[in-house]
Structures are given as structure tokens and as C-alpha cells.
Nucleic acid binder design. Structure first.
Length: 920
RNA sequence: GGUCGCGUAGCUCAGCCGGUUAGAGCGCUGGUCUCACAUACCAGAGGUCCGGGGUUCGAGUCCCUGCGCGACCACCA
């Protein structure tokens, strides 16, 4: 039966079916027993997905990130590893809760109306019904996840891990309850970690306010500078630097706080910078982390004047501070009002524009309010130590390298992690309080019904844990921890590569490393691969709010998942951003679409021309039967395999740490892709495939040679498909399945990675002569406007006997490729009108006698000669320089000498030709 | 404010340890519907490697400096 492919590749019909077949065959399912660590014979290779928010829908960032992971995991799967890619989702505390709250708002109700239990239930239902969409979408882009291991941070299993982690840390003295100023989001009504409160440069104002001096001593006032006048109601002191001569005399005196109309002391504290503002700081311990520290040092009261919703209020210990007119006012409105009041009182000295960074909630963008409260913290310094060492000593490498500095810098200055959130959606903190006994909180792995000491009623802590408190356990919890004997943990932990965006390096990556060491004693992975960001043509990050996003599924529908993947990967320098134009998908994804089309057409040609007769394995063919083209393409294939392997690099360190030389090599996906592209397109398709056409023709004179060509063609294409599969899995699988001699049931996805075959003969090199001759012929034809399709007579002048021999043998092929009838001569034909110069001893091509414009040809050749002379001059100068000869590396000098010989010979030929052709 | 990175063809970027005539994709120009492919093929144009110093026999590559961008971190109110 003659195989035939549709003229047009239709990804839509192909991709869905192939994905289903992969899944049905269990191609993506990893088996713990096959792992070397569990007594099997395959090295395990594991990637855990950065779990997307359970409510997320696929965007380009996911597309990029997950394609990178899929390329890597497919490569390792083919390379013979027991490859596991663990998928899953994150319950995403704040984000998900916000969505459901917005729904409730639309219904005119709130979570408080609903009550905690009902709200959590409703959110869980919402997640169950609509969540996990993104996991379906990942299938559409070809992600080869092991879906039998899909995890969810709020599942019973992972929740158990979360609780175990909390208890162990508590028992180790690394979790404590702290009373301090934390970042508070007045919209989400929860505290945030330092990482969740993002700095944003803002133009604000610096207000200079006079606080009148009171009591004994000279009258007058002291001027403070503040960006947040509304917090002055919570002032408990003003501070100056003890060394500041201007204010030394005032230390210990008191000032009257305007508006609040109370007296507060002037204190001395190092924290005050004399060079900023007036050198006087108002101290508001409840609403500023620095002021809080000052307050602690000086045993000052800490009145709270802004409530949880960001409104002015006398919350605690603040009697008489907030005037009735301001009570309940939003903090920013209150600021305006207070400024007016200060103006009226004549104590506002001046207002200056001021650039400063204001922290915002990373989920809703609201300006964060520093607020005094009780929160649970993780003591980070002890956890950071091994995580820091791991990157320093090369147990873990971060790519691109520059992020290692960012990582170590953060860990060196690590601060304790606020892990409690005043939310309802998440893992409830496993702490109970006994009303009867009072005092110590009870931390427990199991839910408590009563007090273990007195049996009295207990009340669980109201707060839930930071979402990232479950995320940081992801590599261990998804593999079965805290069960230390879990088969997956044994077989697949530590994992190998972690692929993610740099923006969650601290949120997630660093903390996973800490958790890996603390809970299991081993780093969770050896490589962190940080991707770039997907941007539009104005270099703006793609985002929903800007409306400049591209829906990956649109691209899949238009051009196929492979086109999407190829486009992203081929344009992806290590750690660089990817620019795509949302307004011109056609052009943006042209590289991928064009490449898949090319592949398809190679397949069509091959299947249409190879025929149905048995195709021999390469090993069954005696080497002497290979043509120069065969030898050449096999050599190029070897080179491509080598280049791919070099670009992809070592899969894992040889030892427990990366050797210095390999630490920053590998995972160059762009270079890998480019290496195969060049082989497939520029070499296989452009030259080899063309060269086989006469050999494959049904009426080819030599049936034996036809078999050789068929065998080589199928072999080379097979290997190319293997090399390409990680990048473009669908179309390669589809084509591979159609190859002759394919046994049923096998998949390219699990076929083995190509190996370098070995040294080829000199004949491979001789094929270059064919290519050069054809190129020169085409060039001349183009220059003289001879239609490509029109066959012209041409003479190849081969100066050396060996070149003459090759040219003579290959003359039919050269003629076929260049559309010319080629004869070979030792000397330029007498009276020949034009000459072209070639390497390898083939020197002259004479197209159609009489069609040559002598003057034009002379001009061209003279230009070429002048250029060559110039280059030769430079080369000679270098070689005549004794310093170069003695100091440069021997191989470099030898290379230059070789070049000099070649160029000199070429100059000689050119000169002769110019003389012959143009006289002078 | 601290730390780091970037500036190479019209655009997006490769160019490792300094050493062939600085490359690719897209775009552009001219020509081809050549029996796998016009989503293609053939030929071609296009670069003072941001400016200025320096080290070196030799610098896109190393050092200094200026200009222009960007990222991350940050308790100067």
C-alpha cells in the first residue's frame, strides 16, 4: 500500500488523537519500581510542575514555562530515564477567596453573612466545579504530565503534610507567635508576608509639621517630616538622633501633638537620620515597623488609630486621640482632612513632593497598611543556612547564573516569615487554645475535641496558613511525604530540574530548598531553570489588565501546539524574555508554523517516494554502497546529534554537586532547537532530499542504489524526528508512526534518543564540492537572469585531478540540482567568456556561451579580488608578527597558516582569471 | 539607596575560555507556481558590534569611564 499524507498538515485533527493515544498507552506514567533508587535499572528524572492556581486559565506565561518543562522531560524520557512530571494545582488562598468574595458581592452578600463554614464549603464547591481547567489546557499544548499523580495543595494527603510540617517546625522551636507590626491588606483583611507586599515607586508628599514645645524651657516648636500625616494621631513620641547638635538640648522635653492634643516626649534614638527631612521623626509604633522597633526600645505605648479596614478609629489604647470628626474616615481621606486641619491650626510648615516606594498587596494592589498584630512566624535563619550552602557549593545550580547572586543575597538577609493569614480559604493553623487552662497554645497533628490537660473545651486558632506554606512542601508532599517510606519519595526524590519564573524565586524556590533540607535532609532538585517573561512588542509584560495577552489556545487552534512550542523555544535564549505580537499572530508564530509545514512536506515526500518495499536497516548496507551524499548526510546527522547533546548538556551532576565546568552548561533549548532545525531544513531537506530524487525515481537505473537511498532517507528522517520530538511532539509522533517498517504499538515519545554513529569517510567531505558547484551555478544563473528552471550547458573546470574525478562522477547530480548539463574540464575552455571561482579545485563554470556581460563580470571579479587582497594583507601581517607566532595558541597559528595557503591559491586563480578575461 | 544585568542587521536575539571573512529567525529587495512544500524555492541588500579611553601581537569579547535602558532588593520617616 502506498502511504499518503494529506497535502496540508491539520494539527487540530492530529493532536487530540495522538494525545489520547499517549495517555491510553500510559506513556507518561512513571513506575517507581523502575527507578534505580528503587532497585530498577533506569535513572529517575523528575520535574514537579509549579502548581498553577486552581482557578487559573492558561496564559502565555504558563505556555512558555510548561513547554520548557515538557521539552526537558520528553528529552529525558527518550534518553532512557524513568521520567516523571508531577502535575497539580495550588488552592491559592487569597486569590481564590477573592474570586468567591466577588461572586458573593454580586449576589449582594458577604462571606461574613454566610459564615465561615458555609463560605469554605462554597469555595470548595466552586473549585470542584470550575477549578483545574488549566490542567486540561496543559494537555492541549502537549504537556506529558503523569496525570495519575495529579496533586492539589488542599487535598487530604497534602493537608496532612502541611500539618506535619507545622508541628515539626513548632517542635523544633522554629515557629512562634509574634506581636509586631506586619503588612496588612485592608481590602483582603489579612496580613501578608514581606514578599507579598510589593514595593511600588510612588510620587507622594512630604509634610513638614510643627509640634509645639510645651513645659519648662524655651518656647517654640520642633518640625517633623512625614509622608503619612494621618498616622500622627498614633504618635507617642518624636525622635532625634542623639548626636544631632541641633536638637540635643531638646531631648527629654515634651511637645504637644496637634489635633490629638496630647503631650508626647522628645526622645533620642540612633534610628533617626539627621540628614533626612528635618532630622526629627514622629514615632507611630502601631503603624510603622521602624517606629515599632523604636517603641519597643523605649517602652512606649502603641495606640492603634487605623482599623482593619483602613479607617481612622480608636482601636486600642488610643482614647481621645482620634477626634470624632475623623472617626470612620478612610485613611486617605483622613490624610486630606488632617492636612486641612493642620493648615487651619497654622502648624503645617511646608509640603514637598517626595519620591518613595509604597508597598502594595500583591493580590489586589491595595496600599498595604503596617499594623500591629499577633501573627505566627517561621524563624528563617536556621532554615536558610543549608539552602545558602547548597547554591554556594554547587549542589544546586540556578540558571541563568546571575540569579544565584540574587538568591544568596536574599537568604543572607532573610527575615522571619509571617505565615498566618486572616482568611478562611486554606489550611487552618493546627493550634488550639484551652479556655480553662489558658496560657500555652496546643499544637497538634490531629484535631482536638478537648484540652489534653484538663479536658475542657478548646478553640482552634482562627487563622489559616499562607498558601506558600503548602507550596514549599510541593516536591516532597506530592511524592508522599510525610510517609518516609512512600515509594515515590524513595524512587523520585530528590527531583531534578525545577522550571519557573524568577518572580517566585523567593516565594517558592528558596523556601522549597529550605523545606527539602529541613524535612527530608536533601535538596529538592539540582537545577533551577528560570524562564523569561512573555512580552508584547512594546516590551510590556503580557497581562489580562493590559489586554495585550495572547491566548495559547488560540494559537493552538490556528497553527497547532507544535507551532506554538517551536516558536517559543526557538526564540528562547536562556533567561531572556520572549517578544510576541498579540496583534499579529500570523507573523509572531510564523517560525513554528513554517517549520511544522516543512516537516510535514518532508514526510509527504518521503512517504510518497520510498514505496512499499522493505526498507533495509542501515546496518544491513555495505558501506561501499553509500554515495557521497549518503556519507555526507550521515555525517551531518552525527554532527546534529552532537550539537543537540552539547546544547542540552548533562542531565544531572555526576556527583552530588555540580563540577565547576558543567555548572552553567546545558539546557540551551534554543541552541538545541537551532541545531536540529539546521539539519532538517538546511541540510536534509535542501540538499540530501533533493539529491535523492533521481535515485528514487521509479525508473531509476540502479535498483540497488535506490534501496540504499531509501534506507538512508528513512533512517535520517527517523533520527531527525527523534531529535525534534521534545520540541514538536505531535507532528513528529504522527510522522514517525507512518514510517515504513514501523511496528505497531511503539511510540516516538518513548523511542530512544539518537546516538552518534561514528566517523564517516572522506567521501562525506567530497560532497561539499557538489554543494559548492551547485551554489556557484545558481549564483551565476541568477546574476544573468537565467530562469532557475531552464537548463543550461555548463563547464566545471577542476584544477586538481582529485577534484576532477569527483566532479566527473557527480556531474549528473550537480546538473540535476542546478538545472544544467555539466561537463568537466581541466582547463578553461578557450574563449570562455566568464569564470567563477570555487573551492576544492573546481574553478570555473561557464553557462550559456554568449550570455555573459564581460564588463559586468570583470567588475564583479575585480571587486572580489580587491576584497580578498585586503583580507590577505591582514592575514599576512598577523603571521609576520613574531609576537603572534610565539604567543598565540599553536592551533590558532596553524589555522591561520592554513588559511593563508588557501586564500593565496584562490588569489592566484582569481588573478589569472581577471587577466584572462579583462586583459590588464 | 543597594545589587545585578543589558545596549551587535529594520525587529527579536546568538556570539563559550580574546584569534577564520560577526551569525540565526522574522522583515526587506529581485527572481521563480522547478514533479514534498509559494506556510515554499533561488539569489541578494543590510552591521563605525552605544560613545570615549585603556590592556594586548590581536578586543564585539577583558578593564575604566560617559550616555541610554531594564531587573531585583530596600525600615530613611
Amino acid at each position: 500500500m502506498t502511504r499518503e499524507l494529506s497535502p496540508q498538515y491539520d494539527p487540530a485533527t492530529v493532536e487530540r488523537a495522538i494525545y489520547a493515544r499517549w495517555v491510553d498507552a500510559g506513556v507518561f506514567t512513571a513506575h517507581d519500581a523502575r527507578s534505580l533508587r528503587a532497585g530498577g535499572d533506569r535513572p529517575p528524572f523528575t520535574i514537579v510542575i509549579p502548581p498553577p492556581n486552581v482557578t487559573a486559565v492558561l496564559h502565555m506565561g504558563h505556555g512558555l514555562n510548561n513547554t520548557v518543562q515538557d521539552v526537558i522531560i520528553r528529552w529525558r524520557r527518550m534518553a532512557g530515564d524513568e521520567a516523571l512530571w508531577v502535575p497539580g494545582t495550588d488552592h491559592a488562598g487569597i486569590a481564590t477567596q477573592n474570586i468567591v468574595e466577588r461572586q458573593l458581592a454580586k449576589e449582594g452578600t458577604t462571606r461574613f453573612d454566610l459564615g465561615r463554614e458555609a463560605f469554605v464549603e462554597r469555595t470548595a464547591r466552586f473549585v470542584e466545579e470550575t477549578g483545574g481547567v488549566i490542567l486540561q489546557q496543559l494537555r492541549a499544548i502537549g504537556a506529558s504530565c503523569d496525570w495519575t499523580r495529579t496533586a492539589y495543595t488542599l487535598s487530604p494527603e497534602l493537608s496532612r503534610a502541611v500539618r506535619e510540617a507545622f508541628v515539626r517546625l513548632y517542635e523544633a522551636g522554629l515557629i512562634y507567635k509574634g506581636h509586631r507590626v506586619i503588612h496588612w491588606c485592608p481590602r483582603c483583611l489579612t496580613s501578608l508576608s514581606d514578599e507579598e507586599a510589593e514595593h511600588e515607586d510612588t510620587t507622594g508628599a512630604l509634610y513638614y509639621i510643627n509640634y509645639p514645645l510645651v513645659g519648662d524651657g524655651a518656647p517654640g516648636s520642633i518640625t517633623v517630616a512625614t509622608t503619612r500625616p494621618e498616622t500622627m494621631l498614633g504618635d507617642v513620641a518624636v525622635a532625634v538622633n542623639p548626636e544631632d547638635e541641633r536638637y540635643k538640648a531638646l531631648i527629654g522635653r515634651r511637645v504637644r501633638l496637634p489635633i490629638a492634643d496630647i503631650e508626647i516626649p522628645i526622645i533620642a534614638d540612633e534610628y533617626t537620620d539627621p540628614s533626612f527631612g528635618t532630622g526629627v521623626v514622629k514615632i507611630t509604633p502601631a503603624h510603622d515597623p521602624n517606629d515599632f522597633e523604636v517603641g519597643v526600645r523605649h517602652h512606649l505605648p502603641m495606640p492603634v488609630v487605623i482599623d482593619a479596614e483602613g479607617r481612622m478609629a480608636e482601636v486600642t489604647d488610643a482614647a481621645g486621640r482620634v477626634p470624632p470628626v475623623l472617626r470612620g474616615a478612610d485613611r486617605f481621606e483622613a490624610r486630606e482632612q488632617i492636612v486641612e486641619m493642620l493648615k487651619d491650626a497654622g502648624v503645617l510648615a511646608k509640603v514637598e513632593q517626595h519620591q518613595h516606594a509604597v508597598r502594595h498587596c500583591y493580590r489586589c494592589g491595595t496600599v498595604v497598611e503596617p499594623r500591629l498584630s499577633d501573627q505566627w512566624f517561621v524563624k528563617m535563619a536556621p532554615l536558610a543556612k543549608p539552602a545558602l550552602d547548597a547554591v554556594r557549593d554547587g549542589t544546586i545550580r540556578i540558571m541563568p547564573e546571575r540569579w544565584e547572586a540574587v538568591y544568596t543575597n536574599w537568604l543572607e538577609n532573610i527575615r522571619d516569615w509571617n505565615i498566618s493569614r486572616q482568611l478562611w480559604w486554606g489550611h487552618r493553623i493546627p493550634v488550639w487554645y484551652c479556655e480553662a487552662c489558658g496560657g500555652e497554645p496546643i499544637v497538634s497533628r490531629d484535631d482536638l475535641a478537648g484540652c489534653p490537660t484538663c479536658g475542657g473545651p478548646v478553640r482552634q486558632d482562627e487563622d489559616v496558613l499562607d498558601t506558600w506554606f503548602s507550596s514549599w512542601l510541593w516536591p516532597i508532599s506530592t511524592l508522599g511525604w510525610p510517609n518516609d517510606c512512600a515509594p515515590d519519595l524513595e524512587a523520585f526524590y530528590p527531583t531534578d530540574v525545577l522550571v519557573t519564573a524568577p518572580e517566585i524565586l523567593f516565594f517558592w524556590v528558596a523556601r522549597m530548598i529550605m523545606a527539602g533540607y529541613f524535612f527530608v535532609g536533601k535538596a529538592p532538585f539540582h537545577t533551577v531553570y528560570l524562564t523569561g517573561v512573555v512580552r508584547d512588542m512594546q516590551h510590556r509584560k503580557m497581562s489580562k489588565s493590559l489586554g495585550n495577552g495572547i491566548d495559547p489556545l488560540d494559537v493552538v487552534q490556528l497553527f497547532g501546539a507544535d507551532a506554538l512550542r517551536y516558536t517559543m523555544i526557538s526564540g528562547l535564549g536562556l533567561g531572556t524574555d520572549v517578544m510576541l505580537d498579540p496583534n499579529n499572530l500570523e507573523q509572531s508564530f510564523a517560525p513554528g508554523r513554517n517549520f511544522t509545514t516543512k516537516l510535514w512536506n518532508i514526510g509527504r515526500f518521503l512517504l510518497g517516494n520510498v514505496g512499499e518495499a522493505t526498507v533495509l536497516p542501515l546496518s544491513a548496507i555495505d558501506r561501499s554502497r553509500f554515495t557521497r551524499a549518503d556519507e555526507w548526510v550521515l555525517e551531518r546527522l552525527d554532527l546534529a546529534i552532537q550539537e543537540c547533546n552539547a546544547a542540552l548538556g548533562p542531565a544531572r551532576p555526576d556527583d552530588t554537586t555540580w563540577a565547576e565546568w558543567e555548572r552553567h552548561t546545558g539546557l540551551r533549548l534554543m541552541e538545541y532547537t537551532e541545531a536540529v532545525r539546521r539539519f532538517v531544513w538546511d541540510e536534509l531537506a535542501a540538499w540530501y532530499l533533493e539529491s535523492t530524487k533521481p535515485r528514487l525515481a521509479a525508473d531509476a537505473p540502479n535498483a540497488d542504489d535506490r534501496d540504499v537511498a531509501r534506507a538512508v532517507l528513512v533512517h535520517v528522517f527517523d533520527m531527525a524526528l527523534r531529535l525534534l520530538h521534545p520540541v514538536v511532539p505531535f507532528i513528529t509522533e504522527e510522522l514517525w508512526q507512518q514510517l515504513p517498517e514501523r511496528t505497531e504499538g511503539g511510540f516516538l515519545a518513548t523511542a530512544c534518543w539518537p546516538e552518534v554513529h561514528g566517523a564517516r569517510s572522506e567521501r562525506a567531505h567530497e560532497f561539499e564540492l557538489v554543494r559548492d558547484a551547485v551554489s556557484a551555478l545558481r549564483q551565476i544563473k541568477a546574476e544573468y537572469n537565467i530562469p532557475i528552471g531552464k537548463s543550461v550547458p555548463a563547464v566545471l573546470v577542476a584544477a586538481t585531478s582529485s577534484a576532477r574525478a569527483v566532479a566527473t562522477e557527480e556531474a549528473p547530480l550537480i546538473g540535476f540540482l542546478a538545472r544544467a548539463s555539466v561537463t568537466v574540464a581541466a582547463e578553461p575552455p578557450a574563449g570562455a567568456a566568464a569564470h567563477a571561482l570555487l573551492a576544492n579545485g573546481v574553478q570555473l563554470i561557464v553557462p550559456l556561451a554568449g550570455a555573459i556581460d564581460i564588463e559586468k563580470e570583470c567588475g564583479r571579479l575585480s571587486g572580489e579580488l580587491a576584497q580578498l587582497e585586503k583580507q590577505l594583507a591582514g592575514l599576512e601581517q598577523r603571521l609576520n608578527n613574531p609576537n603572534f607566532v610565539t604567543r598565540a595558541k599553536p592551533e590558532v597559528v596553524e589555522g591561520e597558516r592554513h588559511k593563508l595557503r588557501e586564500w593565496s591559491a584562490r588569489r592566484e586563480q582569481l588573478r589569472n582569471k581577471v587577466t584572462a578575461l579583462c586583459g590588464a
